[in-house]
Nucleic acid binder design. Structure first.
Lengths: 150, 150
DNA sequence: CCCGGTTTGTTGCACTTACAACTTTTAAGG
DNA sequence: CCTTAAAAGTTGTAAGTGCAACAAACCGGG
């Protein structure tokens, strides 16, 4: 016998968000996984370096809201694949500056194109107004600042 | 040196969705994990049974768009914890009908209350109009029907 | 009735992840 | 200086996940 309350799973934001996130990531995930053997965090590191240039592991972790152990292992594998280089900072030798190799940049460029196309396909499902509101709302919910959390 | 294109990670829907989903699930996840030792899929199974009554593993998997192996393992653990019962269908003995035990229902009731409160806190971050559009958009993106996929 | 094909669900294994503990380096105080 | 604390990453281990292979039950035609 079902519940007697009015709680609606189909209106519960964390549930809806997770469903939409998983579904919308799936196809693109398949591409970078099948073609380059990349995991999600590796893709994220690659894209941060490709879009924003040289960064440290910590900076990427902060920007992507990803735990440092995940970043650490992603960096390790990307370096193993020769997609990035790691250079110790001479001033602060705890830190390494990460950069794409030519090979890494070429992978990034290809994936960026695919991502852009894929994003277009997703966006086509929604009206421009919906998209605008959606992005604003997602930034509020996903941002590292404010909110009912902390 | 950063990219020369206009691709914007902060506007890429799968990225925004994943960030918002992870962040918005985190606190509630912590509750059902710490208080009842439940994993996400176990919570989902519990909520489906609590809200919609007796279901089979397959039906839950379809409704929640979750792979059958995850459902299978979640069901196993929920039964182990005595939160649900499993009853073979006499007509089709491949199938089991799953139901909450009194204990399971009590856990569900408590979590449902917490979820409702939590949802309120999330909703308070957005205007009613934003919420309306957001839910509509998320259902389009997360639904198992239509879309640019398949 | 029985053989191949489907459906429902489970399991083995390789792989990924989370969490805490750890190393190395830097910074701050006395 | 020397001690203690903090910051940046790394690693060990237990646990969860994905994928493919599997068993069991059903279904339909010959």
């Amino acid at each position: 016998m079902p519940s007697d309350s009015t709680f609606d799973l189909q209106a519960f934001l964390p549930y809806l968000l997770t469903q939409a996130a998983e579904r919308s990531s799936l196809e693109f995930h398949q591409v970078y996984k099948d073609r380059y053997g990349l995991l999600r965090t590796e893709w994220r590191v690659l894209f941060h370096l490709g879009l924003y240039g040289s960064m440290t592991a910590g900076a990427i972790g902060t920007a992507a809201q990803t735990h440092k152990t995940k970043i650490s292992r992603a960096v390790h594998r990307l370096a193993e694949k020769r997609y990035i280089t790691r250079n110790r900072d001479e001033k602060d030798r705890r830190v390494e500056h990460l950069d794409l190799t030519p090979r890494g940049r070429s992978v990034f460029n290809e994936l960026r194109g695919i991502a852009a196309d894929y994003d277009d396909a997703l966006n086509a499902q929604l009206s421009p107004q919906e998209l605008e509101v959606l992005r604003t709302a997602l930034r509020k919910l996903g941002g590292s600042d404010g909110g009912p959390f902390t």
